[in-house]
Simulated assay, not measured.
Amino acid sequence: MDSRVVASAAFVVLSGCMRRIKAHQVQKAKRKRRWWMTSLNRSRERYNVSIMIEDLIREPSGRLENFLRMSYTDFEFLLNEVGHMIGKKDTQLRRAISVKERFCVALRFFASGDSFVSLSYLFKFSPQTVSRCVFDVCDALISVLNHQIKMPRSSNEWKKIAIEFENRWNFPHCLGAIDGKHILIQSPMNSGSDFFNYKHTFSVVMMGLVDANYMFTYVDVGCQGRISDGGVFRNTVLGRKLEENRLMLPNDETLPNHTQTTFPYVFVADDAFALGPHLLKPFQGVYEAGSDERVFNYRLSRARRIVENAFGILASVFRVFRAPMLL
């Protein structure tokens, strides 16, 4: 037999064997799917969150606002703003989850702080789908609402805040209350003690500046929990601009009923912050009742508690801030 024929036959046999071996290895390596969709998730077609929302709208019990943590008008407004950013397309294999359901699962996570597994039973999604919905909605909300929190850009805008503080909280020349809030998190892997705070929990710090109406005018999130509020503030954009005098603050003026002495416009904070030309904190120590220092500390604390109240309102509405985020 011709050697070329033998070589060709051997090559054909060898190629066939290699293909069969490779196909067997691929089939063995690929894990067989146990199920396409669980029976619980398949029942979403019969009754889902969109249907539940419609039922709650028809029932004037207030449970809709409790479930969404906002009025239905606000819900529809935000849904229209972010809907085009979080929607998915249907495929030949399955229908996509509706935009309303994707938005609702994120709102429920904010409102309750439940784990993704717990929310998967309520919304009849897989935990992985719940995770993608939450992160997609967060990115969309940040993109759409980033203009809602903004600092004043002129001395006249700063003065409007100072006038409101004087009228409502009897503290003149106050441009806002500053404080930090520890957002509890699960300890990140290989992070050591970077996020371990003085309360013996793991957290990131949210630094906030609040006006006289409990409205945030500046927010910075993400600094490690082990750093003090004063250290966090120095590393924020607000702290650097204040140190470099780039905030367009009003010039020093006389206090009400005092025509001789000028006084700067200031931010109020607690003892964790460093005293500065435009940053005011209480006198340290204990003073007898009726003393000037005691009266000053009372007035300053009355103005400074606004930021504490704002954090409390935030955690009361969105209870994800009350327990560690398992992320």
Rank of each mutant, 00 (worst) to 15 (best):
C133F: 07
K22T: 10
F67P: 01
V130M: 02
G180A: 13
G16Y: 01
D220V: 09
A9M: 09
S131M: 02
N257C: 14
R69I: 08
V5P: 00
G230T: 08
R302D: 05
R94V: 07
D292F: 07
Q224N: 09
D136T: 13
E288A: 12
C104A: 14
A23K: 11
S155M: 11
E288P: 00
P256G: 02
E81T: 07
N48E: 01
K88D: 01
T217Q: 05
I53R: 04
R226F: 02
K89P: 04
P152T: 07
G192E: 05
R294L: 12
K281Q: 12
F202N: 15
P127N: 13
K32Y: 03
C223P: 03
H84V: 07
R95K: 15
V134M: 11
N80E: 14
G192Q: 07
I142H: 14
Y214Q: 02
W169M: 12
L107S: 05
R240L: 11
R46K: 15
L64R: 04
R4D: 15
V307Y: 06
S155P: 05
F103Y: 15
M206G: 06
P277T: 14
S39K: 13
Q128K: 10
S39F: 05
K100I: 12
A23Q: 12
R19D: 08
I149L: 03
D270I: 03
T91E: 05
M85T: 01
H258P: 00
S154K: 04
A140D: 05
A111C: 00
G312A: 08
H182G: 10
F318L: 10
H278D: 00
N167R: 12
L40A: 09
D2F: 03
Q260M: 13
G208M: 04
F318A: 08
F318T: 06
A23R: 14
G230F: 07
H147E: 08
G83I: 03
S3F: 08
L68T: 02
A212T: 04
I142N: 09
D252E: 15
Q186E: 12
F123R: 03
A140L: 03
R319G: 06
Q186R: 09
T129M: 10
L122I: 12
S301M: 09
R304E: 03
T38D: 11
G62Q: 08
S115D: 05
V6C: 00
S131D: 04
L145M: 12
T262W: 04
E59W: 09
S301R: 13
L280K: 06
R322C: 05
V266Q: 08
S43R: 12
D139G: 08
W169R: 13
K181C: 03
